[in-house]
Amino acid sequence: MKSDRPFFVAFAALGGVYVLLVAALLLADLLYLSPSAILAALRDPNIRSAVWLSLLSSSLAAILSVWVAVPLGYLLARTRFPGRGIVEFLVDVPIVLPPLVVGLSLLILFQTAAGRWVQGFVPVTYAVPAVVLAQFVVSAALAVRTVRVTFEQRSGRTEDVARVLGCTRWQAFWRVSVPEARRGILAAGVLAWARAVGEFGPVLVFAGVTRGRTEVLPTAVYLELSVGNVEAAVAIAALMIAASAAVLAIMRRLASRTA
C-alpha cells in the first residue's frame, strides 16, 4: 500500500495557503496596533456603546435568523410546492445583492405607505430596530441555506418511521428531525451571528451612524477611518476580533456539548 503522505501534504499545502493568509492579516493588524490606541478605544464611551450594541443586536439577529431558517430550510429541503423556485431565488437575493443595495432597499421600503404605517408605532430607520433588521436580512439568508443543506443531507426516513409509529407531523419534527439536524442548526446560528456582527453596508445606509445610538463596531471603524485615525480603527477592529472570538468559542463549546 502506497503512503498517504503526498495526499495529505498536497491538501495541507492548498488549504494552508488560505489559513496563512488569514493569520498574516491578523498578524499585520497586531503589528500595527499600539497599546495606547486600544486603551483609548476602551475608554471611549462611544466605542463601549458600539461594542454592546454589536453584541446585543447581532445576537438577536442570529436568533431571529435561526427561527426563520429552520421552518424555511425544512420546507425547501423536504417539500415541493408551486413557486418553490421563486422562493429559493428570493432567499438568495440578500446574499447576491451588494450590501449597500440591501440597505438602500430597506430605506426605500420604509418610505412606502406600509413602512410609514409601521414607523407610526415603532421608529425603525436610523434607530436600533434598523440595525437589527439590516443584520437580520443578510444573516437569515445564510442561515436558511445552511439549514436547508442540513435537512437535505438527511433522508427523512427516520421521520417517516416516527410517523408510522404514531407521531404527529409536529412530534416527528421536534423529536426526530430537529435533533438530527442540531449540528447544522447550530452552525447556521454561528454563521448568522458572525455575519451580523461584521455587517456594515446595510447598517450604514439604513441605520446611519449616530454615535452612542446606532453605531456598531464596523461603523465605528468606518468613522475613525474617515478622519484618518487608522490606529483607532485597527484598535476597534482588534476589539471586534476579540469579542467575536469569545462569543464563537462559547458557541462552539455549546455545540460540542449538544453533539
Binding site: L107, Q111, R116, Q119, L204, V205, G208, V209, T210, S226
Partner: peptide
C-alpha cells in the same frame, strides 16, 4: 448622523 457624503445625499433624497 454621519456617513459618506453621497450616502447622506441619498438619505436626504428619501426623507422620512
Amino acid at each position: 448622523r454621519f456617513g459618506a457624503s453621497e450616502e447622506m445625499l441619498t438619505r436626504v433624497r428619501l426623507p422620512s
